[in-house]
Design a binder for these strands. Structure first.
Lengths: 250, 250
DNA sequence: TCGAATTTGTGCGTATGTATC
DNA sequence: GGATACATACGCACAAATTCG
């Protein structure tokens, strides 16, 4: 590669990117196949592949195995409303996470007991090794994976009660506040710490992306009278969602 | 690849990641070279390369050509407290943006009049082309660039008043709420929309980073009786800061 | 319904350039 | 200069998914 020149895969990616942003390749249309790219640009299979990977990492296109590589439509990112408030009759965790969109949400979850890691222990103000209930959620919106959540609750609080498992029993799916209320624990405030980082491979896989794409991470902790009763990590793809906070100014 | 198994490069990447987060591979130490990875894990050169690429995309390691692949150090990100509240005697915008750290903050700013872009106009509920006062801030903490802010205020509101320029006059540096109060405008709530994206070249230059690394962006709008009176974009490097929201649960 | 062709995704071996030590 | 290691590139093979006759 001569001095000052770009690598071939970046040159090919750049050319295809131009065609996409200029509209010559409209959303939902197919990119030239790997074989066609190879022929059109006079490059090898590897270069064509790397070029497609660059565009996929940028979120511009989407590979469908056996079918082709398709231009994505770049929708305005959805708002996810974050508030401390939850009404009692709101049975799904979705209304809280995702308030201003009236769309069907579904979720899978799996709960397991485990000893608290030092990070989780600090967030819950318990000792490392104390037993906690860990629950993983994958939320989908219109079938699309949207949000990964992992929550931890101290078993010292919920153990041997009807709400020990968040997604079973009479209050299944009603959320932390109501489940804690059933134990006489009044959740009165929540802290959310928002950051962003490149997504881990497993996360971007579950959320339908490629490693390296940015994700927004919320570390949320619910408190009852100053005592943490639940903490969770919420992970959403940064290019598709924004968190919306509405705060009073006193 | 048998069903249910991970691709080889993800397995290798996962193992190396584990060693990094568990501390077996400390920051600034070198990863096994591609050749060593190939030997240790019994995989090909391609797989070893792909595995390294995954970790580089995740920001965990950094490849230095001719030298090796090194573990990055991840400083615990600082908290930036975000609340609607500002006390009247709090003269600096810093207490709001960055409340729980008691460190010296400084800032530069520059204000200019301009016609509102369509995006800004929508946020301020005015017509595109209406004149606004745009002010750019660069905040520093202990001399280090920390945060870029661009704010827009409708001149229909502040024009020909003592608070037209945010950083001049009697209320210089006192923040939107107090300056609006001087006009009899009572700011009562604020909306913040948090997202993340790869940093633009100018941004990462001003904030001291590399292009392409993620930044957290807050679109903030102050409202007085439902009417937007100021909107701003706040940009911070994602790897060094986290936004902290504390909300009541009713 | 079946099968062939296409396409993506993963993986392998090798070669070469170039930066660092 | 030589050795090492990353970065790019080429060509090939095969599995899985999809498409289409």
């Amino acid at each position: 590669m001569p001095f000052g020149e770009q690598p071939a895969y970046l040159r090919v990616a750049g050319d295809l990117r131009q065609k996409i942003v200029d509209g010559f390749l409209a959303p939902h249309t197919r990119l030239p196949s790997q074989a066609r790219i190879r022929a059109e640009y006079g490059v090898s299979d590897t270069v064509a592949l790397e070029a497609r990977k660059v565009l996929m990492a940028e979120g511009l296109v989407e590979g469908r195995s056996g079918s082709g590589t398709y231009v994505r439509e770049r929708a305005e990112p959805r708002r996810i409303a974050r508030t401390g408030y939850r009404s009692a009759d709101d049975r799904t965790p979705f209304r809280q996470e995702q308030a201003d969109e009236r769309v069907k949400g579904t979720w899978d979850s799996r709960s397991e007991q485990e000893p608290a890691s030092s990070a989780v222990a600090e967030r819950l103000a318990i000792d490392p090794g104390d037993r906690v209930m860990r629950t993983r959620y994958l939320y989908r919106i219109e079938g699309e994976p949207m949000m990964l959540t992992t929550s931890w609750e101290p078993l010292a609080l919920t153990g041997r009660t009807p709400v020990m498992l968040p997604e079973e029993g009479p209050l299944a799916g009603s959320g932390v506040v109501d489940r804690m209320a059933a134990l006489g624990v009044v959740v009165d405030n929540v802290q959310e710490e928002v950051g962003a980082r490149p997504g881990l491979a497993e996360e971007t896989l579950a959320l339908g992306g490629v490693p390296g794409r940015a994700v927004v991470v919320v570390s949320r902790t619910f408190f009852a009278s100053g005592r943490p009763v639940e903490t969770a990590d919420v992970v959403v793809p940064a290019d598709r969602y924004r968190l919306s906070y509405h705060l009073p100014v006193r």
